[in-house]
Design a protein around this nucleic acid. Structure first.
Lengths: 191, 191
DNA sequence: TGTACATCAGTGAACGCGCGTTCACTGATGTAC
DNA sequence: TGTACATCAGTGAACGCGCGTTCACTGATGTAC
């Protein structure tokens, strides 16, 4: 039962998007191809009509996941600059909603330590996503000279990723909230 | 060939310490019990004389890993307070040496996203380690009121964890170094 | 202090299971004439 | 435009492999008398 080219390309797209969500939910190593394909409404045998290996899909799914989140974060900042733009970005990223829904959140926080052990291609996709977030934050820091803004943005995005990760690890709900709040406060504090 | 109580307890300790290193090196899911036991100089069958399950060992190994790193970080700050103590802690944590040796570094950076999906016991051990780091940093911020110092420390430790993780993901060596440097600079900047 | 026996740390083979990957097969799609 | 055949998306069974866990066995340690 061969499918049309268009159907096949839609299927491929569906697998990538399902994977992007499932990897963020259960981890890369923790998500099997059988479960993944089932979640995309397929049987596992067809996987290799679309991808050469699991690693292939991992790299593509990470890229897709990061494209989605950076677009949403960028949208948060549109029409705002400076303190208001920064505040919008930081508040959105460090929200309890983001913390509680890793499957459609930032892949750098959901998969960070796994990514550090991943293939070059996957790490390159992750690096690109990180730089996109850095660019968004840099654009808000318009009262600093460009190189200072960039350096501050590198640190700010690292803070966001670390705080979100830690807020998911923390067993105490109050602590979890405090981590998000103090990171947000620190990042939006005027100098 | 039964071993003496003391030998058995030394063996158990050796397994925990080997696991603490191997998990940080290859991830929790990425490290099998057979390889682990072999690395500790044993065959895998004996594992269950010491632990009820892999998860048991995971929790204990995380606790051990974090105890070791927090002690070393605390030692870095002894005899120094304020800016000098903060700078010593931050510089040590955000060093290229720490980045390049995850196996005996901070488990929160090496395993962060996996820990977020781990059992309550493991996450509790991770939370305790995080709070120990927060306490160390809080103690350096002696010119702030206690609650402000604590909030700033929560954010600072999150920054340290996020920056170290991202520096390991980054495919560009210059970017990797820049992440560490700008985070360190941001954290030690006077207000 | 010496002896007999129970305990149990560690070995190595085996368990069922799910993993990533391969393959023969199907039948609708795409293509060549 | 219609027909014959090649292509290939997707199915479902099967592959070898390593996983966490169990178990019979060993022999030195620990204990009771």
């Amino acid at each position: 039962m061969r499918k049309s080219k268009q159907e096949a390309s839609e299927t491929r797209q569906r697998i990538v998007e399902t994977a992007a969500a499932e990897f963020r939910r259960g981890g890369i190593e923790g998500t099997g191809l059988s479960d993944l394909m089932a979640a995309a409404g397929l049987t596992h045998g067809g996987f290799y009509r679309h991808f050469a290996s699991k690693d292939d899909l991992v790299a593509e799914a990470c890229a897709a996941a990061l494209e989605a989140i950076t677009e949403r974060i960028a949208a948060t900042a549109t029409g705002k600059v400076g303190q208001r733009g920064l505040s919008a970005v930081v508040t959105r990223y460090l929200s309890t909603d983001h913390r509680d829904h890793p499957a459609d959140g930032c892949a750098l926080a959901a998969l960070g330590s796994e990514l550090a052990r991943s293939s070059d291609r996957t790490r390159a996709a992750a690096t690109e996503g990180y730089l996109k977030l850095v660019a968004i934050v840099t654009a808000q820091l318009d009262s600093d000279p460009p190189d200072v803004a960039r350096a501050r943005a590198l640190a700010a995005v690292s803070t966001m990723i670390g705080a979100l990760t830690m807020s998911r690890i923390a067993t105490d709900p109050d602590l979890s909230a405090a981590i998000l709040e103090s990171a947000a406060k620190e990042l939006t504090a005027r100098r």
